[in-house]
């Protein structure tokens, strides 16, 4: 029997224990009425009757859930309404059959598709690059001894706290110095995406400090003896990283991917500054352009917003399990 199995087993046993406790309470309370809650819902309701304060708590919680989900619900409903249905009905109310449409989604898709592709083109490499470099830097800062480590770590830490706005001017100056256009000119296809390459490099550099800090705290929890054992087994510093540290880093990579991808994908500021060619427009810019100059087409904007948010949701879903492990800090 594997450890996971036995852990599950004990958890089951625990749940059973709790259940039987609840059932006992339920029976005590419903003794006179003869109505013994046998299913979960029945027991739950019986529980509520016995503890009015808990019922209050649930009401508050449900209220909070509604409060937080209301904007999402409103947005989603709005995206399925025609312009007239939007003006006639309250935002919370679902549209009538006449007012139901998927046109905003199609229009949004047509106008955003190229930008979604552009965003993916720079956001995915930037995410992977900053996580990988951050992981390597963290490994070098935790498990390899060299002079001046503390000072370098301090620089990384400082990097975490630099706001986007503070680097806008130096950033434009930097890309002014470096003539990316002529550097990339010999490479076909890539030459068309100079702005995106600049954006990718910028985001990678900007993401390294936070990724390093994340990975460093994770690597410090690694057993020193395990890495020493690998060295005694004949592995070089890089082989230890490749065969021991990297495979064990999966949960922290999930954390870094989710965090970094969301940051990069949702960024508008760097994109506004660095993107000059319209064909290189990224999704945040394109989304911004959906707001018309004369008439506000809310349904279109909402559909666009959901389309633009979809990839980040997808990343969350893909890495959720690993993410949870990473946050819990388990190494095995």
């Amino acid at each position: 029997m594997s450890r996971r199995d036995s852990a599950d087993g004990s958890r089951d046993a625990e749940e059973r224990g709790n259940d039987s406790e609840e059932r006992n309470e339920g029976e005590l309370r419903t003794d006179g009425s003869g109505e013994v809650g046998t299913n979960r819902l029945g027991r739950f309701l019986a529980d509520l009757r016995a503890h009015p304060r808990r019922a209050g708590l649930y009401l508050v919680l449900i209220g909070l859930v509604g409060f937080y989900l209301a904007p999402l619900e409103t947005g989603l409903l709005t995206a399925f309404k025609t312009q007239s249905a939007f003006t006639e009905t309250s935002p919370f109310v679902p549209p009538s059959l006449d007012g139901l449409t998927i046109d905003p989604w199609l229009t949004a898709w047509n106008r955003l598709a190229y930008a979604l592709a552009n965003s993916a083109l720079f956001a995915i490499p930037a995410t992977i690059a900053s996580a990988t470099l951050g992981s390597l830097a963290a490994y070098g800062l935790t498990h390899i001894r060299w002079r001046g480590q503390v000072a370098v770590m301090a620089l990384f830490l400082a990097g975490v706290f630099i706001p986007y706005q503070a680097v806008l001017v130096p950033l434009t100056q930097l890309w002014g110095f470096i003539d990316m256009t002529s550097l990339l000119a010999p490479i076909p296809i890539v030459a068309n995406y100079v702005d995106l390459v600049e954006l990718m490099i910028t985001h990678t550099a900007y993401g390294i400090p936070i990724c390093t800090v994340l990975f460093r705290s994770y690597y410090r929890s690694f057993s020193e003896e395990m890495l020493e054992a690998a060295r005694l087994d004949g592995a070089s510093v890089f082989r230890v990283y490749r065969r021991i540290v990297l495979p064990l880093s999966k949960p922290m990579f999930a954390v870094a991917f989710i965090f970094q991808f969301t940051q990069v994908w949702n960024d508008l500021l760097f994109a506004l500054v660095l993107i000059t060619t319209p064909s290189n427009g990224v999704v945040t810019i394109a989304l911004n352009q959906l707001s018309g100059s004369f008439v506000q087409q809310y349904n279109l904007q909402m559909a666009g917003a959901f389309l633009a948010a979809l990839p980040t949701l997808l990343v969350y879903v893909l890495f959720t399990e690993q993410f949870a492990e990473g946050v819990a800090g388990r190494t095995t």
């Binding site: 395990m226 020493e228 054992a229 060295r231 005694l232 021991i244 495979p247």
Partner: peptide
């Protein structure tokens, strides 16, 4: 001489097995 080149094997108190 580096640890990896000494042809020495060590058993640690924590066993130090590679968990993955």
């Amino acid at each position: 001489r580096q640890a990896k080149d000494r042809n020495i094997a060590m058993v640690f108190q924590s066993y130090a097995l590679y968990p993955h």
